[in-house]
Simulated scan of single mutants.
Amino acid sequence: MIDSQLASALEHARASGMPDLCELPPEAARGLYRVLTADELPALDLPYETRQFDGPASRLGLRIYRAAADAPGVILYFHGGGFVLGDLDCYHTLCSHLCARSGCHVVIASYRLAPESPFPAAVDDSYAALEWLAAHCVSEFARPLPIAVAGDSAGGNLAAVVSLLARERKGPAIALQALCYPVTAARPGMFPSHDKFNGIVLSAATMQSFHQHYFGSADATSDFRGAPLLASDLSGLPPALVQVAGYDPLHDEGVAYAQAMFAAKVKVSLVDYPGLIHGYLNMAGKSPTANAALTDLALALRAALAAQATPQHFNPTRT
């Protein structure tokens, strides 16, 4: 059964006549997405700083949320939105809570959106953000720190793909890949949950629209940078946390990726929240269960980063 608070929110959305995201042109859909992600969590008075980094094609923005000076590491977060929607403002409150609950610094990086910038633009930008963070850790945080990557939905896909690329390119090092209801399959309709939970937050039509916007004429059925389940070798990846929601069209592909990594001897923690729905991290203000899942994510990230931190990280100068 769907979490009662989230079921009520879904019923309210249906009664309001809210259009499906795929029924709107991308710019209008982005505006609606900003509305949908606004005020879903209590706002925190946590300051942030804005920086820019050099993406492959343009300068891109990122935000830094700072924890205490002795924070054990930094989380690089990639936002969701089907590779078409989402921005730093949409995820401001979520990143504030992730910083506060984990006690770790959080950096959220923007990436170019489709259809204006189709695949693999988001991948290239996300890996560039990881390289920027690794290169600027000391200048931003006064000492080298372990880095974890995290993301939800399309952002979970990017966190997974960046982890694959970092393994192939021998860095930067990643302490944990935290993938929340990630996109991992080559196309919509490949798993039973795609049909079983069609229309619960995500419709089949919207998933197909996002897929078309992102991949366009590109062949998405052979490139792991679009679908990490296509990777021929998953061994040697960073430890992974995979969170999935019981009533999510993406449920089965998230489970499949966790199982594939486990079969490749990657250390994996798979957490299935049976009553939750797609996008629950942005709904944590509506549901105690979703709120607990956000805390679970924050604590897992802290534990992984603390395990990687060395005494030198905490004592950069010696007397």
Rank of each mutant, 00 (worst) to 15 (best):
M1V: 13
M1N: 14
Q5V: 03
Q5Y: 12
Q5R: 08
S8D: 15
S8E: 14
A15D: 13
S16D: 09
P19S: 11
P26M: 05
P26S: 09
P26A: 07
E27R: 05
A28H: 07
A29T: 02
Y33H: 12
T37C: 13
A38N: 09
Y48D: 09
Y48C: 14
R51S: 04
Q52V: 09
D54Y: 03
R59F: 03
L60R: 10
R63W: 11
D70K: 07
V74E: 11
I75Q: 03
F78P: 02
G81K: 06
G82T: 00
L85I: 04
L85T: 00
G86S: 08
D89N: 10
H92N: 15
L94D: 01
S96L: 01
A100M: 04
A109G: 04
R112C: 11
P118D: 09
P120A: 08
V123F: 05
Y127R: 09
W132A: 09
A135N: 12
H136P: 05
F141L: 11
R143Q: 14
P144E: 14
L145V: 04
S153K: 01
G156I: 00
G156N: 00
S163M: 01
A166G: 09
R167C: 03
I174M: 08
A175Q: 10
Q177G: 08
C180Q: 02
C180D: 00
C180H: 03
P182N: 08
T184R: 06
A185C: 02
M190Q: 12
F191C: 04
N198P: 00
V201N: 00
T206K: 01
S209M: 06
H211L: 03
Q212I: 01
G216D: 13
T221Q: 13
A231I: 04
D233R: 10
G236K: 09
A240V: 09
G246M: 10
Y247K: 05
D248M: 08
L250T: 01
H251W: 12
D252V: 07
E253T: 08
G254R: 06
V255R: 07
A256C: 03
Y257E: 00
A260I: 04
A260M: 03
A263M: 00
A264T: 07
K267N: 12
V268S: 02
L270R: 06
P274M: 06
I277C: 02
Y280R: 06
A284L: 13
K286V: 05
S287A: 10
A293T: 06
T295D: 15
L301M: 13
A303M: 15
Q308C: 15
Q308P: 04
Q308G: 11
P311N: 10
Q312Y: 11
H313C: 15
F314Y: 07
P316T: 06
T317I: 13
